[in-house]
Simulated scan of single mutants.
Amino acid sequence: MDNEHNGGKQEFAELEKSKSHIIVEIIEYMANAVVIKTIIRKSTGNISIMSFDSGEGLTEKTSPFDTFAQIIEGKAEIVIDRVSHNLESGQGIIIPAHAPNFIQPNGRFKMILTIIKSGYE
């Protein structure tokens, strides 16, 4: 099951259920790319794991839902409403719904993004 694509693209196959996974090993780094792999995708929300090669980030965006970002390897700079937050492995942050945010390139890192679609807020 190969779900890895660069450019922020992904397939929506979920991870195998009822099987233990080493989260940080689910996804690998790809040169000059952001790789996204779906862990769970439902109409009520999704969980994805992402890897960022050095120099790679995400452009500014907003979401109608709160998003929980958790760093699982390396360090990341997440900018929310023009305020920079430096996170290290094991740390997480809630990105509020409708808040402009982006990920500033800051070396290689991996993170999990969780979005719960409880309704428009």
Rank of each mutant, 00 (worst) to 15 (best):
G92A: 14
F102S: 11
A76H: 04
I95C: 00
S118N: 12
T62I: 14
T114A: 04
V34R: 15
Q91Y: 05
L87R: 01
S89C: 07
K9A: 14
G92T: 06
A99Y: 01
S118V: 02
G90S: 05
G92Y: 08
K37E: 07
I23F: 11
E77A: 10
S89N: 10
E4P: 02
S48G: 06
I22A: 12
L87P: 00
L58T: 15
Y120I: 09
T114V: 03
N101C: 10
K17E: 07
S84N: 06
A97K: 05
I93H: 04
R41H: 05
H85R: 05
I103A: 14
I94V: 14
I40Q: 05
P100Q: 04
G92R: 09
I112A: 04
I94D: 03
H21R: 05
I26W: 12
N6S: 14
N86H: 12
N46I: 00
T38G: 03
P105T: 13
H85T: 05
E16L: 01
I36Q: 14
R108L: 10
G55M: 06
I49D: 03
E121F: 07
G55F: 08
G119S: 01
S18V: 00
G7S: 06
E121R: 11
F102T: 11
K117M: 01
I36R: 15
V35K: 10
G7H: 11
I78T: 02
E77C: 13
I27H: 12
V34H: 14
G7L: 08
D2L: 10
V35S: 10
S43R: 01
T67Q: 15
A69P: 05
E25A: 12
E88C: 14
H21I: 02
A69G: 09
A13S: 15
T67H: 08
M30P: 02
K9R: 13
R41C: 02
E60D: 05
G90R: 06
A99D: 02
L58P: 04
N46Y: 04
I78K: 02
I47Y: 01
F109S: 13
K19Y: 05
N3W: 09
M50F: 12
L58S: 11
E16T: 03
I115A: 01
T67E: 13
F102P: 09
N6F: 12
M111A: 08
N86C: 15
R108G: 08
I47G: 00
A97F: 00
M30C: 11
L58H: 08
Y29E: 11
I94C: 09
E11A: 12
S84T: 12
I94F: 06
I23S: 14
I72H: 13
G7Q: 08
Q91D: 04
S63P: 01
T38F: 03
G74Y: 06
A99T: 03
S20Y: 09
D81N: 09
L113G: 04
M50G: 04
I36V: 14
L15I: 13
G55K: 04
G45M: 00
E121T: 07
N86E: 13
E16Q: 06
F65T: 02
V79Q: 01
I40W: 01
K19A: 03
H5A: 14
E14M: 10
G90A: 03
A13D: 15
T114C: 02
E25D: 15
Y29N: 10
S18P: 00
L58Q: 12
K61V: 08
D81L: 08
F109E: 04
E11Q: 12
